[in-house]
Design a protein around this nucleic acid. Structure first.
Length: 269
DNA sequence: CCCGTGCCCTGGCGGC
DNA sequence: TGCCGCCAGGGCACGG
């Protein structure tokens, strides 16, 4: 479940490791990950130099000589750099980028996606054009007006990448805890002050998580040297049955919008 | 337009 | 020990 901090950590490592390399060939071993014609995909990438690695919300973007390769890791997507060695059964896309060096896209659940877009249009076309701002760039009043028109649980709204981008299940639970807001509060009942506090909390949590290299929990383990330490900072997520670090009330786990949700029933109103 | 539900996929785990 | 069924969940298609 890479969210903004995990994707940013991967971006920084990829930037250091593969920028300047040239893609010599690409093997696609599980086609549904690629969201465009396979032969066109392979042809577009052939002999392209990797110029830069960008990130928008939870999307990674490989800036190539002529194209942008837009990647979403979804639940378990990760990259490994390997020499010539046998393919692991969960490696679905293999980029040959040098003398016996391969960059391998590994995804146990095969939920990840890749799109090819032109350099001129990639920000203005799907999927990047539908992304809301990241919390650090969001205008709280605009978000407040947006939320005020909806009647959904605040947790559902924070997970909606069209409203704000970058937050996933872990950081939404932590953001709501820091803001002292119950995950089921309806968005049309939030005050301006609460929305300002929410965005500020999200920003604080994400920047701290980026500084610590993200979280490494459950199935999302190390890739390309990604060993996050933010999981040690979690206050509520995965803490069901443990005391709230603020008031000592036992943290409860519920479901909100189909997602496992952790919260303090006393602190969060 | 708006919101809730189901689906994609596989490994891990609880129950028997 | 082995098998079965369920759960995890980001984002989208679909239906009420």
């Amino acid at each position: 479940m890479p969210e903004l901090p995990e994707v940013e950590t991967v971006r920084r490592i990829l930037q250091k490791e593969i920028v300047g390399k040239t893609i010599q060939s690409v093997d696609v071993l599980y086609e549904p990950i690629v969201q465009s014609d396979i032969s066109q995909f392979k042809m577009s990438l052939n002999e392209e130099k990797i110029v830069n690695i960008e990130r928008y919300g939870k999307y990674l973007v490989f800036i190539l000589s002529h194209w942008a390769l837009i990647i979403h890791l979804r639940m378990e997507g990760k990259f490994y750099l390997k020499k010539d060695e046998p393919r692991d059964k969960h490696e679905h896309i293999i980029f040959r980028i040098g003398d016996g060096i391969t960059l391998r896209y590994h995804d146990v659940r095969k939920f990840g996606t890749m799109h090819i877009r032109s350099l001129e249009e990639y920000k203005e076309t799907y999927p990047l054009n539908v992304l809301g701002p990241e919390p650090k760039d969001a205008d709280p009043i605009t978000i407040y007006h947006h939320l005020h028109k909806k009647k959904i649980a605040v947790k559902t709204a924070l997970l909606d990448q069209h409203i704000l981008s970058g937050l996933g299940n872990i950081y939404v639970d932590e953001t709501l805890f820091l803001s002292k807001i119950k995950p089921t509060r309806r968005t049309d009942q939030l005050t301006k002050k609460e929305v300002i506090h929410l965005i500020d909390s999200a920003q604080q949590i994400l920047s701290k998580a980026v500084a610590l290299g993200g979280s490494t929990i459950r199935s999302y383990t190390a890739s390309l040297g990604v060993h996050g330490r933010f999981q040690n900072e979690l206050n509520v997520h995965t803490k069901a049955g443990e005391p709230c670090p603020v008031c000592g009330t036992i943290i409860i786990k519920t479901k909100v919008g189909g997602r496992g949700t952790y919260a303090c029933p006393t602190c969060q109103k």
